[in-house]
Simulated scan of single mutants.
Amino acid sequence: MSAGGADLSKLTARDIWVFDLDNTLYPAECDLFAQIDVRMTDFVASYLGMERAEARALQKAYYAEHGTTLKGMMTMHGMSPDEFLAHVHDIDLSPIPHMPELCTVLDALPGRKLVYTNGSREHARRITDYMSLAGSFDGLFGIEDSDFVPKPAVPAYEAFCRQHDVDPARAVFFEDMARNLKPAHEMGFATVLVHSAKDWSHEPIEARPAGAADESQPFIDYVTGNLTGFLEDVVKSRAE
């Protein structure tokens, strides 16, 4: 269900707003993952002493099997995560457009606003600072805060809820990947899929985790292609 005349009653009594970071707070058309993807391949190649083509194939296999390349490298090779995260997130943020309306509507939402990303906390800080959104959020939760267990693993969501004292029955979860909304829905979050026609993953279809792009699942309460417009509708609905 999209916004724009949609019944937003599931969100009326909720006052905790949880946002994924990449391709959710900023448009997927920015394609920042293209930069991250290249830097992951370079790191894997250097770390394992592989040719780049071989490293890329392994990177994609780990993404499919472990949820993130990071988790695969840690599990299979005992890699320390800090250097990997610093390297892959050292990217140019200039493709992100100026989005003052998003800042305004986030500040108008009643209650707490949190970022929950499979990237690092520093990556979340850089992007929210760049987007002038740092003051709009009450906390950032990165992959290191879940002991490097990525979404959609349930223990990662449980760690997030513990750290930020989140009651899912009072919270709304915004994500660009459908599969990451299933555990949130089962825990009691209202769920919003932030949809884009842009395939940002740079993955062959056979390497994508199951459910990565399915928008028709019953665990998705709302679908929107315009996060700012959706939030504006939410604020207006609550005011009425």
Rank of each mutant, 00 (worst) to 15 (best):
L140K: 05
V154S: 08
G135L: 08
E158S: 09
S136E: 07
S136W: 06
M131P: 04
G139E: 11
P152I: 00
D165P: 00
A156Q: 03
G139H: 07
G135P: 04
F148T: 07
I143G: 04
A153P: 00
Q163K: 15
H164Q: 03
R162D: 15
C161A: 14
S132P: 01
V166H: 11
V166I: 13
E144P: 06
V154A: 13
G135T: 05
M131I: 07
E158A: 12
K151T: 00
D129H: 08
T128D: 09
H164N: 04
T128S: 11
L140Y: 11
G135Y: 11
L140G: 05
A156G: 09
E144G: 06
P150R: 04
Y130L: 13
A159W: 00
G135C: 10
F148I: 06
S136M: 09
D138T: 07
D167H: 01
P155K: 01
K151I: 00
F148Y: 15
P150S: 03
D129P: 06
D129K: 08
S146Q: 05
F160Q: 03
E158Q: 15
F141Y: 09
P150N: 05
S146E: 09
V149H: 01
P155D: 04
Y157A: 02
P150T: 01
V149M: 07
G135M: 09
A134N: 08
E144W: 12
D129F: 02
A156F: 01
P152Q: 06
P155R: 02
G142V: 08
L133Y: 14
V154R: 13
C161Q: 09
G139P: 03
I127P: 06
G135A: 09
C161S: 08
D145E: 15
D138H: 10
I143F: 05
K151G: 01
A159I: 06
F137P: 07
R162N: 14
D165A: 02
Y157T: 05
D167V: 02
P152C: 02
A156E: 02
E158W: 06
P150V: 01
Q163P: 04
D138N: 12
L133M: 13
L133R: 10
T128M: 10
P155M: 05
A153L: 12
G142P: 14
A159C: 03
C161M: 15
I127C: 12
